[in-house]
Structure formats: C-alpha cells, structure tokens
Nucleic acid binder design. Structure first.
Length: 284
DNA sequence: TTGTGTTTTATTGCCTCC
DNA sequence: GGAGGCAATAAAACACAA
C-alpha cells in the first residue's frame, strides 16, 4: 500500500524469541564493560543517568530486577534463569521517566513541531529512539489539540448560556408588556362602549373599535390624544409602545397581505430553535 | 486484591507535500 | 514514491475506589 510504513518493533515478544536479530536490532545489548549510553554522558544532567529511564530502550531502574538490562549488567550474566525469564516473557511497553517527559515538555513548549535534526538530538540526549521522540510529539500534539477543543467548547457553552439568559429575560419582558397592552386596550374598549351608550359615539372611533384590525396604534393614539386616562395609565401605555419592535405596529399602507408575527428576515436568531421565535410573535 | 476508568505509548491506515 | 502528519485505535501502565 502506498505510504505504508513498517517500523521495526521495539517491543519484541516471546514470539520473537527465536528471532534474536530482531531483538538485538531494536535493543542493542550492552556488554558489561561498556557504558549503556555513551552519547548521553557529558550532554545530560547526571540525574538523568542516575535515575535511569523506564523506556524500552534505556531500561527502567525500577524493573531492573526483572529486566534484560540486569542480565547483562551483572557479573553472572550467564545466569540461564534470568535470560530464560527475559526471553520467555512478553516485553511490555514502558513509560518514559519523569525527567524525560519534563525535557520533552520543555522542548514541546519551545516548538511543537519536530524537525529531523532536533528529533535526532533529543533522542540522543534522552537515550531514546528518534521514533519514540516523534511518537511522543505526535501524541503530545493530539493531547494539546483535544485540550484546546475542550477550552473552545467551554467558551462557546458560556456564550450560549449568556445569550440564553438574555433571551429568557426578553421573553419575560415581552409577556409583561403584552399583558399591559391587553389591560389598556380592555380599558379603551370599555370607555368606547360607555360613550356609545351615551349617544356621543364618533363615527371614526366606532369604525376602529368595531373592526378586527390589529392596528392598536390607531386606537391607542386616538385615545391618548383625547383620553381621560389617568396620567399613570398614559405613561404605561406610552412606555409599552416604546418597547415594542417597530414591526409590531405596521404602517397603515402595509395593511393588506403582511404577516407581522415574525421578525424581519434580517433579524439574528442567535441559532435558537424555530420554536424560540415565540419572542417575536404577537398573538392575541 | 480486584475491577474499572484514565493516561500514556505505540501502531495502522490514510492523506498531503515535495 | 517516500517522508511525515493526523485520526483512530490497541494495549500496557497507572490510579483509585470498594
């Protein structure tokens, strides 16, 4: 397959026990007189060397009693039992040491992409295979990305909650204003009837009141002009009208076929569901 | 001690770029 | 067409409650 990569595994298993070359290729066996990682010396803090590493390549001090490392580290490296133990157990993946991870983290902070030269240098410094360094960076970038996604999600969630709260408040305010308008129109209606029964009914006024027209502005305005409403009532009505969106009171010439139950097309719904357009409807 | 959930290391397959 | 990046995933290591 194109682009398909095959890497020599550094986690040789029991199944590889009859294939020593594979194992030695991936985990070079040091002789007892040879430093484990000569290239590290002088280029790395001594703590790194003292603490050892838990990677497959450099062998963890914690596991030394059971490790391949010990088999070759000890004088009696001909110990058949230890060798046998090594070759007959599954070699597991090991975690990098705290020091190695800290070093890689610092490097990642400086630059989260890894040029070949830097990869090789890091691998040398840490006593890892360059592929391990590459994998670590790759996984680190993936973690970084998912963290960023989490942050973005939280931020969007907060924005949404804030908008939703605003929306709920507007909805309440709308209901309140609607109620006020209903009360005031009821009052107007009552007064109109009283006047009619007094025989002083004006033609224009009755036309408006008798119709099913939704043009409450006309009714209200007429009444405000010559009403005997209390000052408070007039104030309330004026306020209510000021708070209403313009499209609630259409111009008379727009009368015929317009449905004003929806906001203008350009209004932003902020992505609320269609049901939430209840805010815009003005049904009696 | 053990079951279970999380994190870390490593692999695989696909894609893009040069 | 090879190198390297990424997403998805496997599996080992680890943490921790019961």
């Amino acid at each position: 397959m194109a682009g398909r990569r095959i890497y020599p595994s550094n986690t040789s298993t029991v199944a590889d026990s009859n294939n020593l070359s594979v194992l030695i290729q991936s985990q070079r066996v040091p002789s007892s007189s040879e430093p484990l990682f000569p290239h590290i010396q002088g280029s790395f803090p001594s703590s790194f060397l003292v603490s050892g590493t838990r990677s497959m390549v450099s062998f963890d001090g914690v596991d030394r009693n059971r490790s391949f490392f010990r088999a070759f580290e000890e004088e009696d490296n001909g110990d058949d039992d230890i060798l046998d133990e090594y070759f007959h157990r599954t070699e597991k993946k090991r975690r990098l040491s705290v020091e190695q991870v800290q070093f890689l983290e610092k490097s990642f902070e400086a630059e989260n992409k890894l040029e070949p030269e830097r990869k090789i240098q890091l691998a040398k410094d840490l006593g890892l295979q360059s592929r391990q360094v590459a994998i670590w960076f790759q996984n680190r970038r993936a973690r970084c990305k998912s963290k960023q996604l989490e942050k973005d999600y939280d931020s969007l969630q907060a924005d949404y909650n804030s908008l939703k709260a605003d929306y709920d408040n507007l909805l309440k305010e709308k209901d309140k204003l609607k109620q006020e308008v209903l009360e005031l129109t009821d009052k107007l209606s009552m007064k109109g009837k009283e006047k009619a029964s007094d025989g002083e009914e004006s033609k224009a006024e009755s036309d408006i009141l008798d119709s099913d027209s939704p043009h409450y502005t006309d009714v209200v305005q007429f009444e405000l002009d010559q009403s005997d409403l209390s000052q408070d009532e007039e104030d309330n009505l004026s306020k209510a009208m000021l708070h209403l969106p313009a499209y609630v009171f259409p111009k008379l010439e727009d009368d015929n076929n317009n449905d004003y139950s929806d906001p203008p097309a350009s209004s932003c719904s902020f992505g609320f569901p269609a049901d939430d357009h209840a805010l815009w409807s003005w049904d009696y």
